[in-house]
Amino acid sequence: MSEPVTALGGVSSDARIAAIAEAPLQGMITLRADLSDSAVKKAAKAAAGADVPGPGTVHLGDESGLCWMSPDELLLLCPYAEVTETLERLQKALVKTHALAVNVSDARASFTVTGPRAREVMGKLCPVDFAPDRFAPGMFRRTRMAQVPAAIWMSADETFRIVCFRSQAQYVFDLLTVAAQPGSEVFSDGKTPALA
């Protein structure tokens, strides 16, 4: 029996302008299908316990949720231990629909960036406006983090969740720790203003 581990063994770095930590194992299922199909909506809702989100948004429940990845792709979040069961249920519900559901939990690494200056840290790495009135909990964004793709949402007011490819986990962790080095604060009042 193999023991599942996260990409970096749960590393964290606290003595910085924002706390960086690798998130614990997270169940993730990629669902590709026509998202306007009512059978797909129903199956996704039953599996995740959340309605299918609209473009650029995420619907989070207690332990599971749905993220809008593209017009034909959802990312289903669920507890790691329940992935196999959830996937089976999803596939059974979609047996008559043109759809693809795959367990990608072990292909990804995820991180949290927490603190009042988390927005500054993220703003240094992504071409995204992270002002509080432009990016808030409930929104979901796939973008570029320095040189690699990443998916970002906020699980609380000062907490970012980042999902990247597992092979790039060390790179992303290094990026975050450098962007959050002590003394690298961007705004003296700690408030990230909107770009335009």
Binding site: S70, P127, V128, R141
Partner: peptide
């Protein structure tokens, strides 16, 4: 498609 406005490196 997704309505996102971003600069060209994305």
């Amino acid at each position: 498609v997704c309505g996102v406005t971003a600069e060209e490196t994305e």
